[in-house]
């Protein structure tokens, strides 16, 4: 079943085409890696798919809803986290979960049971009443991912979720991603870590606003005669003309 379907999606800012006519489908339960150099158009594309930015032209449906007609229904059915923004630092763990649960319309009893489940899984029982800012970054990011999925969204969008995280926690974070995908959640993820690109079922590489390559990691590596995804990325991203300066 397709949970994201994108046709000729385009976004222009004045004379600048940030996202240029992109087309792809994403299946349910897929871990979909979205790579590209800085300035290639990843963030703009992601903002459109989250219903936060209106496309200039093209079509897309996300979680079964049309991007133009039902942007708000899309927001209810997706989760989002990024390295830059995730949780409220001056709220406790419990308060953050309560807040996000409320935002996504969960009942109080659901929030209560989700809270217990979540802190138990992340082994945060002892810190539940601590402020989020007192947590190590790695814990924060794992908590943020779990909170972004508190309403069991069909899709979760992760924008560079592991930047600056230590190598062990980075792997624990990916284990959470594997588990979510195993349960049927679709994961749409951007990263600058090329080893993480290998963990994705399929990878799209954006160059100058266009999807330059899209396939499974195995096919991409064979096609570009590369030993790993890092080499595939370098070959494609070097072709960029508009670049980042």
């Amino acid at each position: 079943m397709k949970v994201i379907s994108v046709r000729n999606l385009t976004k222009r800012f004045g004379s600048f085409t940030a996202v240029d006519n992109i087309t792809f489908d994403i299946e349910q339960g897929e871990i979909f890696g979205f790579l590209g150099a800085n300035g290639a158009g990843k963030t703009t594309a992601m903002r459109m798919l989250c219903g936060l930015s209106r496309p200039t032209s093209g079509e897309a449906s996300v979680a079964g809803y049309d991007l133009y007609k039902n942007a708000n229904r899309i927001k209810e059915n997706i989760g989002y986290m990024s390295q830059k923004f995730s949780l409220y630092e001056d709220l406790t763990i419990r308060e953050n979960i309560r807040f996000y649960g409320g935002i996504y319309g969960l009942s109080l009893s659901d929030i209560r049971s989700k809270t217990n489940l979540l802190v138990k899984k992340l082994k945060l029982e002892d810190s539940i009443n601590s402020l989020v800012k007192s947590l190590p970054l790695g814990w924060k990011q794992k908590l943020a991912l779990s909170v972004a999925m508190i309403h069991d969204p069909k899709i979760v969008f992760l924008d560079e979720p592991t930047g600056g995280v230590d190598p062990i926690t980075r792997r624990e974070f990916w284990t959470l991603i594997f588990e979510a995908a195993d349960r049927g959640t679709t994961v749409f993820v951007t990263t600058h870590y090329m080893d993480e690109a290998e963990y994705c079922n399929r990878v799209a590489i954006m160059v100058d606003g266009q999807v330059e390559a899209l396939d499974t990691t195995g096919v991409l590596k064979a096609k570009y005669a590369a030993k790993d995804m890092g080499e595939v990325f370098l070959q494609l991203a070097r072709k960029a003309k508009r670049g980042d300066g």
């Binding site: 290639a40 600058h192 890092g230 990325f233 991203a237 960029a240």
Partner: peptide, 8 residues
């Protein structure tokens, strides 16, 4: 930090 593999 936050810079793509080519620019790095």
């Amino acid at each position: 930090t936050g810079v793509d593999a080519v620019s790095r």
